[in-house]
Design a protein around this nucleic acid. Structure first.
Lengths: 126, 126
DNA sequence: CAGGATCCAAACGGATACTG
DNA sequence: CAGTATCCGTTTGGATCCTG
């Protein structure tokens, strides 16, 4: 990722294809809601309505949309219980858990550098 | 982050303030371009036009916008050389470098689970 | 309860033109 | 070269209504 493509390489086509796919995946998951969902779901399996409550501020629409995307990329597994009313559980897959570890890092970072950031903002003006 | 606020805590006001600030910071940096800039700038100090070339696909506007935001949050330092034509260097601060480490993790993840993701997408339909 | 569909306002983001 | 400002189409995302 972030690679300046070596344009002369033999399997250039595959490299660029892989590169653009990597980029696409990155774009998918590098967004606020997706990362918050991954982080939240990391704690434990949850159903739709639980997620809705735990991920503060997320709308119905954004939650479904991101869950579908995460499922498509194999980060989340969706289990439908054929009951009525329906019950759907969402769980992080192993790749999802692996990514969650790095998202944890981002969260830790936010807390560790909280002071730095406030100071920087003050220096900056706003 | 991602906390279900303990509404009864004594310094509740401070907690929610800190929480919403943490959330704001998270929203700022958890976006595609910001993370790509951090990742790219992690390699070395670069000037505006270099960044423009290295961060593939980024527009002039998005680059300036995100650089300002990163500067405001103390992740990036901006050094203006008073020459003509002007030359501006951007460098990651120490907090920026720290965050970069976790972004590296995300990039590694993308490559490590590349196969899983392709397979998942295939199973999913698209 | 889970989630699809629709409407619509707000934001994002690219292209372009202009300045020091 | 670096950066601001503006125009304007595209996308996002919330609110709402509807189904199994």
């Amino acid at each position: 990722m972030v690679t300046t493509q070596p344009k002369g390489s033999p399997d250039e086509a595959d490299l660029t294809r892989a590169d653009s796919l990597a980029r696409e995946i990155f774009s998918d998951i590098a967004n606020k809601w997706a990362l918050l969902i991954i982080e939240t779901l990391g704690e434990r399996t949850m159903r739709f309505s639980e997620l809705r409550n735990e991920v503060e501020g997320i709308s119905h629409k954004m939650l479904t949309q991101n869950l579908r995307m995460l499922e498509r990329n194999g980060l989340v597994e969706r289990h439908v219980h054929p009951t009525v009313p329906p019950r759907v559980d969402y769980t992080l897959t192993q790749p999802g858990q692996a990514l969650r570890a790095t998202v944890d890092g981002m969260c830790d970072w936010t807390h560790r550098y909280f002071g730095h950031i406030e100071a920087a903002r003050h220096r900056f003006g706003t």
